[in-house]
Computed example of a mutant assay.
Amino acid sequence: MIGQVREMLGGIEGRVRGMVARAIVRLVDDARQAQELQLELLADESQDAVERFQNYGFTSVPHPGAEALVVFAGGLRSHGVALVVEDRRYRLTALADGEVAMFDDLGNVVKLGREAIAITAVSRLTIDAPAIEVTCDTADVSADRVTIDSDNVQLGGAGGPAVARVGDDVNLSTGKIVSGSAKVTAA
């Protein structure tokens, strides 16, 4: 009788043990609606087309060699789901308690820090929007070169008289711009 109970429980025990596993990412298929991973689980076990669940609004494509935590519903290894993928080779460290960051393997970082929100771009930061508003007490810009490409630059607020540019003709006795552009105004 005890042998029969052990035999019955042996199958359940194996399924419970097999419900959660660590894995190494070998390949990523990011073209599907749900990203799929090829994973190496145990020394002789691999799984293809394992769906990866990602938090809404955030997505990434992990490098081969990243680690995954996989769950198997009911302990059946036929349908795994990767819940978390971590890559300790590139993990951002030294955050203060409560800080949050997005990062990649190149060093690009968006950090919600205790003192400031900091964006680090290793090559270029591009903002593409129909309108941008910045409201602050002070703004500092440090650059080797600043280019503003606009048909209407208003310094100090909307409107105002035109500002002479290098090369514009100015009547020195009246201070009026005789010829040139009215693209730049100052209040």
Results as ranks from 00 to 15, higher is better:
T174Q: 00
P161S: 06
A143T: 11
A23W: 03
S150M: 11
D104R: 08
V20Q: 10
K183E: 09
D29F: 02
A116Y: 07
S179Q: 13
D87V: 00
R145F: 00
A162T: 08
Q54S: 14
H79P: 00
R145G: 01
L9H: 04
S60T: 05
S123Y: 07
T93W: 07
S46R: 15
A34V: 08
A121W: 02
G74E: 12
V166A: 13
D144I: 08
K183V: 05
L27P: 06
S181H: 08
Q154E: 14
I117D: 08
D104I: 12
G57Y: 04
N108S: 10
D144K: 13
R91I: 11
N108H: 11
V141K: 12
M102A: 15
R88K: 15
I24W: 00
A66F: 01
L76G: 08
H79M: 02
A82F: 01
G180S: 05
G98R: 11
R88T: 15
V134F: 09
D30S: 13
Q33P: 09
A82W: 00
A118R: 15
A116K: 15
D137Y: 03
D105T: 02
L155C: 02
F58L: 11
C136W: 07
V109R: 05
A182C: 11
V178Q: 12
L106Y: 02
I24E: 09
A131L: 06
G57I: 01
R145M: 01
A182G: 12
L172N: 08
T59C: 06
R32M: 09
S173R: 13
L172I: 14
E7C: 01
M8R: 14
M19P: 04
G65R: 03
M19Q: 07
T120K: 10
E133W: 06
V110G: 06
M19Y: 03
E51C: 04
D140M: 05
A49Q: 03
I177R: 13
A186P: 03
R22E: 02
I12H: 11
R26H: 07
Y56W: 07
A96R: 12
S78R: 10
I117V: 15
R114K: 13
Q54P: 05
G156N: 14
G167S: 08
T59M: 00
R89Y: 01
N171Y: 04
I148H: 01
D128T: 12
V71Q: 00
A139M: 14
G175W: 06
G11F: 10
G156H: 05
G157N: 13
T135W: 05
R124H: 09
G57C: 07
L69D: 00
D105Q: 15
D87E: 01
R26S: 10
P130M: 10
C136M: 06
M1Y: 08
V50M: 00
D97A: 09
L95T: 15
M102P: 02
R114M: 03
E86K: 12
M19T: 14
G14F: 04
H63W: 08
R77S: 05
N171V: 01
L112D: 10
G157F: 12
V110T: 12
G14S: 14
V146I: 15
A23H: 03
A49F: 04
